[in-house]
């Protein structure tokens, strides 16, 4: 008999599919969080592979802050229609109406209202007992200790000290009423794996990941998009900059990087020689309120 081995991407793909099927088999009402970025694009592709030839056996949930880039909304509506996925959009309308903005509330409070609270409310409103998300362990150091099946108490909070041990590929999916689980099928993928997989599988992504001349403001070491006047601080003047985004979040809080990479091959090459992590362009990870604290409160 011939010896057969899988490439690392095939191994990671097989693992993610196994995890998604386990979620659908074990939970009453699962949902997949969809945030429109490259990791979400990969998750959606994996889900289609997992349940082929049938349709997706769950909805996609987009927790929308209202501050996403225009290109992200266009892409979201196009792709969900293209693949025939059911999309639920949830917004914390009350906070949005009260004018929540990172420059006004501070990043931590704005995220708390528009992302963390909105996510917890959305999961409750939908009665979802399991939420799959595209977080990866290589993104940030507190994530390195997160389980693939990450148990949350009835308040949606994470207690890093009392996590369930996770052995082999046997996932304990049992919970009491009111508790929930976050599942991260691409926990073991790195940023490079994501890009290589997007290239290998020809997965559509938001055009913001490709380099283009865009109107930007230089703030310290960061490039802030200037397409929304609300993003600007007094005295800041936008200028055209050849750049692209390595990660996508809310437009006031997501920086771009100088780059001329406008094909997936060039992005892979650029990622391979990058010396700074992708999360560096995300303002939420900096400052006193760490990712660990946010996660304890229920941040994704």
């Amino acid at each position: 008999m011939t010896t057969s081995t899988l490439t690392h991407l095939q191994t990671l793909e097989a693992e993610a599919i196994h995890i998604m099927r386990e979620v659908v088999a074990e939970f009453r009402n699962p949902v997949m969080l969809y945030s429109v970025g490259k990791d979400s694009s990969v998750m959606l592709h994996l889900a289609r592979k997992a349940f082929h030839p049938g349709p997706l056996p769950f909805s996609l949930l987009h927790v929308d802050t209202g501050f996403k880039f225009r290109e992200m909304y266009e892409f979201r509506d196009w792709i969900t229609k293209e693949v025939g996925a059911k999309l639920i959009v949830y917004r914390n309308e009350e906070a949005i109406k009260q004018g929540a903005h990172p420059l006004k509330l501070g990043v931590a409070r704005c995220c708390g209202a528009l992302k963390t609270k909105a996510l917890l409310d959305a999961l409750e409103a939908g009665g979802f007992d399991a939420a799959m998300g595209g977080a990866r362990r290589d993104e940030e150091r507190s994530r390195a200790k997160e389980r693939i099946f990450s148990f949350r108490d009835e308040f949606g909070q994470w207690d890093p000290k009392s996590q369930r041990p996770e052995l082999w590929d046997l996932y304990n999916c049992r919970m009491h009423e009111g508790e929930s689980i976050r599942v991260f099928p691409i926990s073991n993928w790195t940023e490079m794996d994501i890009w290589q997989y997007i290239r290998q599988e020809n997965i559509p992504i938001v055009p913001l990941y490709y380099a283009k001349e865009r109107m930007m403001v230089k703030r310290g070491a960061m490039l802030i998009p200037a397409d929304d006047a609300g993003n600007l601080k007094p005295g800041e003047v936008p200028e055209p900059v050849m750049c692209r985004y390595r990660t996508l979040g809310c437009s006031p809080c997501t920086g771009a990087v100088y780059s001329s990479a406008n094909s997936i091959e060039e992005i892979v090459a650029e990622s391979a020689i990058a010396t700074r992590s992708e999360r560096e362009t995300r303002i939420i990870d900096h400052g006193s309120n760490s990712m660990e604290d946010k996660k304890k409160e229920g941040y994704f």
Binding site: H8, R137, D138, R141, S142, A144, K145, P160, K161, Q163, S187, N188, T190, M192, D193, S290, E292
Partner: peptide, 28 residues
């Protein structure tokens, strides 16, 4: 050292997963 609690106490309390790659292989 991943978690604040560990850095404060100078110990490791749990399994952490790390990733690196060479042109020959990927590692977890």
């Amino acid at each position: 050292d991943g978690l604040q609690a560990e850095r404060e106490q100078g110990i490791t309390i749990d399994v952490a997963y790390r990733y690196f790659a060479t042109p020959k292989r990927k590692f977890i």
